[in-house]
Design a protein around this nucleic acid. Structure first.
Length: 259
DNA sequence: ATGACATTTGCAAAATGA
């Protein structure tokens, strides 16, 4: 079972890449982020045409997440948005579904820049809400995959230049500590389990020729619960999609677990 | 410190991103 997370940066602008990906890689589950589109504007017929169906949690202009599965093997929707006191949070950043015996979440963490503003506070608060929900998910003692754009660079190994990014919200000590607090509940970072060291990038900025000089970082993560980690077969990044025409700034990042 | 570039909204230039 191949589970993929792909921050599209606009589903309408990215339809050729999305359909291509479904055709070529045929993922069992595709978690999308930043579809930047209200539910009623999603090009759903083109997704159907590629043989997929989805649960959508869109938003006009920005954010927006989804979980796609092949038609005829529908996922069962479990929830949209994170639980928590923050009922005024209208950002579409979380959706959770059940695919076979596996729970899969597609999440889009707040970026949090600039540091020192309410945006950074919102990021940390969101991570805390996610931490609490992740505990509940672990308590179910079943295979769970937390897949998405976490907007956290976990360590200095995960960025082309720690110095260049030193003041970015993605790698502040508070962001990293919050990520670790979740990880240390008992989750396995699938990419680091497969590639214990060295650079593995999932994002390359559009500016300054970052992709051409391979100046990227790792912010798209798939966290596996213990029983999902027991079934880990492989993981990777489909980097070639980042080099194609009209590419997203993120590359599809995936894990394969025993079916 | 700024902007490099990209997408969306709305139809110019601002908001958002990372």
């Amino acid at each position: 079972m191949k589970i993929v997370t792909y921050n599209l940066n606009g589903i309408r602008a990215r339809m050729p890449r999305l359909v291509e990906y479904l055709d070529e890689r045929k993922p069992d589950v595709l978690c999308l982020q930043e579809i930047k589109c209200a539910d009623e504007s999603i090009p759903i017929e083109d997704v159907r045409g590629a043989g997929y169906e989805g649960h959508w949690h869109g938003q006009k202009g920005f954010n927006g997440v989804a979980v796609l599965t092949p038609a005829g093997r529908p996922a069962k929707l479990r929830r949209v948005r994170l639980p928590g006191a923050d009922e005024e949070d209208l950002h579409s950043r979380y959706i959770e579904a059940e695919v076979g015996d596996v729970v899969v979440a597609s999440l889009y963490l707040p970026n949090g820049n600039p540091v020192g503003t309410e945006k950074f506070g919102y990021k940390l608060a969101w991570l805390e809400r996610l931490r609490l929900h992740a505990l509940d998910l672990l308590a179910e003692e079943r295979p769970v995959v937390l897949a998405g754009d976490w907007n956290v660079i976990p360590t200095d190994e995960d960025v082309f230049s720690p110095r260049a990014m030193a003041h970015d919200a993605l790698m502040q000590p508070e962001s990293r500590a919050a990520f670790r607090r979740i990880l240390h509940q008992g989750w396995t970072d699938a990419i680091r389990a497969r590639f214990p060291e060295g650079p593995v990038w999932t994002f390359w900025d559009y500016t300054a020729g970052c992709f051409q000089r391979d100046a990227g970082f790792r912010i798209d993560h798939l966290l596996l619960s213990p029983s999902a980690a027991d079934r880990l077969l492989d993981a990777g990044v489909d980097k070639d999609y980042r080099g194609r025409e009209k590419a997203s700034d993120h590359a599809p990042t995936w894990v394969e677990i025993e079916d």
